[in-house]
Design a protein around this nucleic acid. Sequence first.
DNA 1: TAAAACTGATACTATATTAGTATCAATTAA
DNA 2: TTAATTGATACTAATATAGTATCAGTTTTA
Lengths: 148, 148
Amino acid sequence: MKVLTKNTDYAIRALLALAAKKGSYLSAKSIATEHDIPYQFLRRLLQEMIRHNLIVSKEGVQGGFMMQKNPDEITVTELIEIFQGKVQVSECMFRKQICSNRARCVLRHEIMRIEHVVQSEFEKVTIGKLLRDLEVVNQVSSKATTIN
Amino acid sequence: MKVLTKNTDYAIRALLALAAKKGSYLSAKSIATEHDIPYQFLRRLLQEMIRHNLIVSKEGVQGGFMMQKNPDEITVTELIEIFQGKVQVSECMFRKQICSNRARCVLRHEIMRIEHVVQSEFEKVTIGKLLRDLEVVNQVSSKATTIN
DNA sequence: TAAAACTGATACTATATTAGTATCAATTAA
DNA sequence: TTAATTGATACTAATATAGTATCAGTTTTA
């Protein structure tokens, strides 16, 4: 069971790249080569993110993509929903058995409870947070390199 | 994004049926018809559950399947792992970027933290618990029927 | 002892999702 | 005017999920 597909994975990486260069345009090509993401695949993901107002683009030479939405307000939940559809544990498992005559079903509630836990956990992780974590790691590793 | 696939969904239903009739054999056919599960599909799932020592079988006339493991010790996590593979958020996303020179990677840790939360939530849900919930619902709905 | 009701094992097909590629038109900076 | 870029969209490939079919072996029971 894989929770994040390549779409989401690549999208997160691309957003981290854009968030790091906030305010300037980065071309799809440069992101693709730097982060090992298949170029045409990435372009589609970027288009999708424009539609969701996460980023903006500029056509032509020196064009590219730029961060639009505040990275701290872009959650992994949102990205999962864009690229993998809304998190759902299962279409009401047990429907026939229990829910047929009763509107509500405790089992379904049990499952939905988990669904919400999962969602809220992913909501805590934003592009902004990931970016800061990333910067910390880079500092640590560059220090370590100096010592070696 | 669907967290439970049909495999797991059907397996849970079949286990609930078997747990409810603890100590006696139920045929694949009867489970399939009663719970609307494709017969041959179900048989494969049952075989798999035998391999994992959740249930046992008896061949021939009056044969079938019987609960083996304590329903309170069968977690949804276990079933997901059997039928959908181990829960993993992503194969180390960002590997190339960060983990290449450092053994550890905070981002990976962030992701793994969520992975563990998800797992532990599903671990709270056992076949035994679901069965008890189910019985409560049945009581409530039969009372309601009487009143009507 | 033979038939019927079962499971064991396994191969097969169909469908959906995920992953990746290709192409051409339009835009823009130099 | 050309080269570097995005916009849009159609296409293929690979993998995972879902479901079907078949035949051999076992056991109860008439």
